[in-house]
Amino acid sequence: MLAKRIIPCLDCDLGVPRGRVVKGVKFKQIRYAGVPWELAEEYDRQGADELIFLDITASHERRETMAKVIEKTSENVFMPLTVGGGIKSLSDARTAFNAGADKVAINTAALKNPGLIREIAEYFGTQACVVAIDAKRRYGREPGRVVVDTPDGECWFECSFYGGREFTGIDAIQWAIEVEERGAGDIMLTSMDRDGTKEGFDIELTAAVSDSVNIPVIASGGCGSPEHILEVLKETNASAALAASIFHFGEYTVSDVKEYLRKGGVHVRLQARS
């Protein structure tokens, strides 16, 4: 049976020569590893199922730095690697793939130029294009929107881009259906209401999107504990959960989380300790 995936997200500041993972990293009993590929190796040892490298810088050199980060990582880490942040074109995607990425995640570029999804899928395969959707709740009913019932009232979900700084007026659920038709392989769905709060995933959002598409949905935004991951994987049809801070701050290892999920009845990949 296919396992639910646990995906640590590495927010990379590429403004320094070797890049560094921001948010600080303090593993229990493990030396500080601020360099992205060292952290990637540590997550591999812990049993992460995939890794996402997110470029959170805005410098001009970042594409080259990210390429180097992926190149170094792919020498020793043999699991799917996704690169996101600042990918605007097929050429940007190609730089990432040539460095050893398996998938690229696009958000702003997909909303501005939806044809890019198909281009990436045709060049690198349908599994290669992850569309990231950053969705925010808009309470109340509006014509032409997919309205979802939540404990806080009816709402629809609006897509944002430019890292959450601007809104598009596009319905996130309708957009999810469209990106599947256009050839996306995964949807990385981030709740803007929950991101950074550590209050748990947006269950209604995740359920609504994962029930509307047939491609895998990665739940993101709001993870503060293993209980939150259990909740989103049990109560929705999400295929994967993404988390950053609970792993980076060393509160939990990936294997701690997976052991907890297994006890809670979620099918996960546990590897024998070696």
Binding site: L2, R5, I215
Partner: peptide, 10 residues
């Protein structure tokens, strides 16, 4: 089933 199958299986 969701297509493609994407992920770890036994």
């Amino acid at each position: 089933v969701r297509i493609p199958q994407m992920g770890w299986n036994e």
